[in-house]
Computed example of a mutant assay.
Amino acid sequence: MRKLNAMQRSAVEKTLAKRPKPPGEADDSDGADAKSSGKPEKKRAKEAGTVMEILLRVIAWWEGMETDDVARAKGITRKAQKQKPSSAAIKKPAAPAMPEKAEPPKSLSRLEIIQELWGPGFSLPGSADFALRVASLADFTRKGRFLDLTPGLGGGMRAVAAKHGVSILGIEHDLEIAAEAMRLSAKEGMSETAPVHACGPDGLEPADFNPAGGHAAIFMREAMFAVADREKMLAEIHRGLCDGGSLVLTDFVLADGIDTEMDEAAALTAWRAAEGGIASPWSEAEYRQAIAAQDYKLESFADISSEYLPLIQAGWRQLHDCLQNAKLLPETAPTLIEEGAVWLARSQALETKQLRLVLIRAIRLPARNGGAEAGEYPASQDAGDIDE
């Protein structure tokens, strides 16, 4: 029987509900809460959404179990499955049908799984429409270069370059993704207008933002929350932008009052763990203060969580449909579980409204004291965490 190794199981256990306790076995944390409130303890099973449903099926297949048994063990309620028509209601064919040739099992690579989720050439939710919506905050009539610090597979960058008739350079931290993004750009005849390069082994460096003052816009999606020295990052971006140039980014931020007026939700804690423990997002107030301190004029700061969540769910429904009709080799399971654990954690944290996804546009003002000094650029806490 196939079994998950410790690392694979840990990634899933951080996001799936804990197993229900057998009768008579108390849960210390829940019991303490119940006793202090004087109310009887109530346990509510989580209902499986699209992402969790896929994880349940993958785990069941991987461990040789029934999906319902895995769900019960995790205290998760599955949505009602469509009933198959009874044999009496099925009309027998006039002639026996020829048996279909069984499709051999196949293996999906990490890049293939990512594109099954988000579409060909994309590695984040939303595909071309969302990428164009985000990029539309920049002023493409300005002279200067355009730089994408999180191009992923380059699909969004290529869509923006084609629509606005500009050239955009992408700098990607993941070597495998960067190579595939460059191949896709070359395949579409955009190796000059939408090239993607891999950054160095230590992450982004000052040279990546050169020429100083030469960029009309710099883009960054869902990555700043994992950068160790965000003030330094904002300073380097400021140095790279021309006067009036745009910083356009999406990022995860904390709702006001977390850890001061309200406790952090369990789903938010699980999200931090699923991101590898390097997720330390700012609050909106902290973001606004940091942007102002780096000589930017904040033009917009919009909460787009309600727009983003359906995009995540749509991607997982798309993958779910793919898995329904595909037979996969066992080596595909760990990648599916790892990817699923991250996106399930992100979805559940956003649903608490303690975590939000925001869309920010800031304009570069002339730097004080003659401009920001360039120094050695520190990588994120993990150089691989400036993601996709």
Score class of each variant (00 low, 15 high):
Leu311Ser: 05
Gln348Phe: 03
Glu284Asn: 03
Ala293Trp: 00
Ile360Lys: 00
Glu339Ser: 12
Leu319Gln: 04
Ala345Asn: 01
Ile304Ala: 00
Ala345Cys: 10
Pro281Met: 10
Pro334Ala: 09
Gln294Cys: 11
Asp321Pro: 07
Ile304Thr: 04
Glu286Gln: 12
Ser300Arg: 08
Thr335Asn: 10
Tyr308Met: 06
Arg317Gln: 14
Ile360His: 00
Lys353Ile: 13
Ala326Ser: 15
Cys322Pro: 08
Leu355Gly: 08
Gln318Met: 14
Leu359Cys: 04
Pro310Trp: 05
Ala290Glu: 05
Glu331His: 12
Arg346Lys: 13
Val342Met: 09
Gln324Phe: 08
Tyr308Ile: 08
Ala333Met: 08
Leu323Asp: 05
Asn325Thr: 12
Tyr308Phe: 06
Ile291Met: 10
Ala341Cys: 09
Leu323Val: 06
His320Tyr: 13
Lys327Leu: 11
Ala292Cys: 12
Trp343Cys: 00
Gln318Arg: 15
Trp282Val: 08
Trp343Asp: 01
Tyr287His: 13
Gln348Ser: 11
Ala302Asp: 11
Asp303Tyr: 01
Leu355Met: 14
Gln294Gly: 07
Ile291Pro: 01
Ser280Glu: 14
Ala345Tyr: 03
Asp303Thr: 00
Gly340Gln: 02
Tyr308Leu: 05
Ala285Gln: 09
Glu351Ser: 15
Glu307Phe: 10
Ile337Phe: 06
Ile278Pro: 04
Ile304Tyr: 02
Ile312Ala: 07
Pro310Leu: 04
Gln289Cys: 12
Ala290Tyr: 01
Leu357Trp: 02
Ala290Val: 00
Leu336Trp: 05
Arg356Gln: 03
Tyr296His: 09
Arg356Leu: 13
Thr335Arg: 11
Leu311Asn: 08
Gln324His: 14
Ala302Met: 11
Asn325Trp: 10
Ser283Ile: 02
Ala279Cys: 09
Leu311Gly: 00
Ile312Met: 09
Glu351Asp: 08
Ala349Glu: 00
Ala326Gly: 07
Ser306His: 11
Ala345Trp: 01
Ile291Cys: 06
Cys322Ser: 12
Glu339Gln: 15
Cys322Gln: 15
Glu339Lys: 12
Tyr287Arg: 08
Glu339Val: 13
Leu328Pro: 00
Trp343Met: 04
Leu359Tyr: 01
Arg356Cys: 06
Arg288Lys: 03
Glu338Gly: 11
Lys297Leu: 10
Ile337Ser: 06
Gly340Asp: 02
Pro310Gln: 03
Trp343Val: 02
Trp282His: 06
Ala302Pro: 01
Phe301Trp: 05
Asp295Cys: 10
Val358Gly: 03
Gln313Trp: 11
Arg346Glu: 09
Ala326Gln: 08
Leu298Asn: 02
Ser300Gln: 14
Leu329Ala: 14
Ile312Tyr: 12
Trp343Phe: 11
Leu319Glu: 09
Leu350Pro: 02
Gln313Glu: 15
Thr352Ile: 10
Ile278Thr: 13
Ala341Trp: 07
Leu350Cys: 11
Ser347Gln: 15
Leu344Thr: 02
Ala314Lys: 14
Trp343Thr: 00
Leu323Cys: 03
Lys327Arg: 15
Ile360Phe: 00
His320Val: 12
Leu319Lys: 03
Asp303Phe: 04
Phe301Thr: 05
Ser283Tyr: 03
Leu323Asn: 01
Asp295Ser: 11
Ile304Asp: 00
Ser280Phe: 14
Ile278Glu: 13
Ala349Trp: 05
Ser306Pro: 09
Ser300Leu: 05
Gln354Leu: 09
Leu344Gly: 02
Ile312Ser: 07
Gln348Glu: 14
